[in-house]
Design a protein around this nucleic acid. Structure first.
Lengths: 142, 142
DNA sequence: AAGAGTAAGTTACTAAATGTAACCATATGA
DNA sequence: TCATATGGTTACATTTAGTAACTTACTCTT
């Protein structure tokens, strides 16, 4: 039964962390008090994480080049996402009033910090991609 | 200049990891080849991560109880998200044909594995929440 | 036996997010 | 004069997500 004890201990440790993150595990409390929901909302769109990762790779990118890398995004949405990322402190926007105008986007130190964490998560995803694909197969064939 | 070298080295390390994740940093290649986009699509919605975290806290939850914890989600969306999470191998669904029917949701071992990584990221978010809030303030006041 | 309750969803409808494509200012080079 | 370039914006169409009422199949109460 040693193994189960280890598994249980792991779960208890995780549960503690999760509880701490939510502030409470109690659905009678209002979710406005839950910071995690607020923070997660940044990454809960189709493009923001891709933008941050590309800026993590290229320290400075201009609008149109970023658009090419984040393949498939439209001007409108890229513009919106960059504004949101800027106003949340992940991205820095530097404008040079040349002709044609030049605008450079880069990560703030906070954004770089975030990239570190993001890389850990996405590396795990990549490592487990075969498992994920296998899981999908199972369900589509059955 | 020692510090800058350290920063540079850090960036080179990260850039290497990001390149590896994308498979390539080249916008002329089709994004279908990019596994990260595919995998990210799971977490790029408003609810999936919350569902996984609550299942990380409570090892087994039934539909309506999960709905109460993931405060604000509708039946339809919870149902959809659970199907998606199940078909991607994160969540296990066990149905007991009693009356009324009982359905229990829990994380698979793969899902538990994912929770570990998720906790690291969300802990970082919580730790940095003051910074995030300060960033937002700056922009809304200016 | 009629009516209320229960769990786990569906369904039809509405609202919000996203995508498309044309447009703008300002200037340069052919 | 016309095409090109940058960094967007705007009006409109489409897709995705959210809401609230409904369903099934059975039990328990009156």
């Amino acid at each position: 039964m040693e193994k189960e004890t280890i598994v249980d201990n792991q779960h208890i440790k995780n549960a503690k962390k999760i509880k701490n993150m939510f502030g409470h595990i109690d659905y009678r409390n209002p979710p406005e008090l839950c910071t995690i929901r607020d923070v997660l909302s940044l990454s809960s769109d189709k493009w923001s994480i891709l933008i941050i990762l590309y800026l993590g790779y290229f320290p400075i990118l201009r609008f149109n080049k970023l658009k090419k890398y984040v393949y498939g995004i439209s001007n409108k949405v890229l513009s919106e996402r960059l504004k949101a990322l800027e106003s949340n402190g992940y991205v820095h926007r530097e404008m040079y009033p040349e002709v044609p105008i030049r605008v450079e986007y880069s990560l703030t130190s906070f954004g770089k910090n975030y990239v570190e964490k993001l890389i850990e998560l996405t590396e795990w995803m990549q490592l487990n991609n075969p498992t994920i694909l296998a899981n999908k197969e199972k369900f589509h064939i059955k």
